[in-house]
Structures are given as C-alpha cells and as structure tokens.
Write a protein that binds this DNA or RNA. Structure first.
Length: 247
DNA sequence: AATAGAAACAACCGCTGTTGT
DNA sequence: GACAACAGCGGTTGTTTCTAT
C-alpha cells in the first residue's frame, strides 16, 4: 500500500512515513510493553524504529493500545457521541474519554462521515445516507438482541449444568447448598446497589465538572452491564486475535 | 460486469499548552 | 523569565473498500 500511496518513503529528516508495517508495530508493542509509554522520541529511537516520536505516539494511541475496542460504533455509542458533541462541540478527546476503548481520531472520523454532511444540508444524498445508516443500525440492533438472547440462554444452560453437578456431589459436599441458592437465585438488585454506590461515591469527592464527566462514564458503564456484555466479550476475543498476530 | 461516488479509516500536519533546563 | 523539547489536540488528506446505478 505504501508504495501505491507514495508514502512509506523516508522523510526530510530521515524519518519513515506512511502506513505502519507489521514489523514496526511489533517493535513498538514490544518496547512499550517493556518500558511503558512516554518520551516518544526516545521510544522511537530506542525501539529501533525509523519513525518520529509523534508518529509512534499516534500509532500506539490510535491503533496498538491493548484497551482499544475497535469494531463498529454501536447505536448506543452513537447516541453518546451526538449528545456530547452537542454539549462540547469538536472536543474529540473530551468526547473520547466518555467512550472507553474509542479514540478521538475514531470518533472524529465517525462524526465527519456520518453527521457533518447531514448537518450542512438536507439534500437527497444526505437522506440516502441517513436511510443507509438507519438500515445498518437496525441490523446492528438485531444482532445485539440476538447475542443478548444467546447469552441469556447460555446463562440458563450454565446454571442447569452447575446445579446438576452440585446435585451429583451433594452427598460428598452437603455444605454447597447455599451456593446453589446463589446460582439459581442471584443476590437481589446487584445493579441497583451498584447504581447507589456510584451516586454516593462521586457526590462526596468530585467537583462539578469532574462529576459531569464521571456521570457520563458511569452511565456508560452501567449500560454496559445491561446490554453490551456480549459486545465486550466479542471485543475481548477480537483483541486476543489481534494481539496474537503481534505477540 | 463496470464504474462512479460515498464511506471508512489510517496517518500526517500545524498549532497550542505543558514541562524541563 | 526565556527557550527548547515534548505531548496532545483538531483539522485535513490520501487510499481502500463498499454500494448504488
């Protein structure tokens, strides 16, 4: 690709430019794993990369960081982006902080491709774009619901299996009956408790603006508890797959 | 099946704020 | 306090992939 792009060449000060190769990624990951982030110019030099520090930082932050989510922006994330953009404008990094695993670059790109045009005009083409987006969102929603159903089924299956295992071993381990109780009837309103503790926690220690940010973070995390478990799992899997190419 | 246009994404650039000397 | 180096941010560009015609 780099050849086609006319990039990948060596820049004026001897730095390589253009798309990163797998080998460069590997070197950067290895180095950051051993020495951590920071002092990107040193990172570039000591990792044996012919890149400037800025380029290394960008590559790490936007692409190689292990906590990145990747994959399509979900309708829920999109809603958050819209709301936060209405509130803060083009402060992409601020918005990104409320979307764990998403980068400012990713959000910026998403905004530009999906919303900038529709804001500008109500022309036919933008209507088409909206319709297309809507179709995709509906598809994503369907998929999420399917995954959620499967997850719930899995949970029921798991409970059955564990319960029957406990049955089989009841004679040998009679004290496990309370365990069964918890598996089949989990402690009531765990999430309500979590919500209360969230509210209590930051009302005591944070400033107004910090609080606002934290509330968004918490809302995001809470929503994760309800709806995005599978997505998280999928991403975890994705990360493992992705990282396995490097590590 | 070919092609044009749109969408998606990675990466660069320039500017600004922060930190260290 | 002045300056240089660095980090981070937002805007922009270039290429690839997808979709509609």
């Amino acid at each position: 690709m780099s050849e086609q792009m006319g990039w990948g060449a060596v820049g004026g000060e001897g730095w390589r430019k253009g798309p990163w190769t797998a080998e460069e990624d590997r070197l950067l990951i290895e180095y950051v794993k051993l020495h951590g982030e920071g002092r990107w110019n040193n990172v570039a030099r000591l990792a044996g990369l012919k890149r400037n520090g800025k380029s290394c930082r960008l590559r790490w932050v936007n692409y190689l960081r292990p906590d990145l989510k990747r994959g399509q922006i979900t309708p829920h994330e999109e809603r958050i982006i819209l709301e936060l953009h209405a509130r803060w404008g083009n402060r992409w990094s601020t918005i990104a902080r409320s979307l764990p695993g998403r980068t400012d670059n990713e959000i910026k790109n998403y905004w530009r491709t999906h919303f900038k045009k529709t804001c500008k005009s109500n022309s036919d083409s933008s209507e088409k774009t909206r319709a297309r987006l809507l179709r995709r969102q509906q598809f994503q929603l369907q998929q999420q619901q399917q995954q959620q159903r499967k997850y719930e089924q899995d949970q029921i299956e798991m409970k059955k299996i564990i319960s029957s295992l406990l049955d089989e071993n009841e004679n040998e381990m009679p004290n496990f009956s309370h365990l069964r109780q918890e598996i089949v009837y989990p402690a009531a309103s765990d999430e309500q408790g979590l919500l209360c503790s969230m509210i209590n926690n930051h009302s005591t220690t944070t400033t107004a603006s910090e609080e606002e940010e934290t509330v968004w973070d918490d809302l995001w995390n809470l929503d994760d508890l309800h709806g995005n478990y599978i997505a998280g799992k999928a991403n975890y899997h994705h990360h493992n797959l992705a990282s396995s190419t490097f590590y």
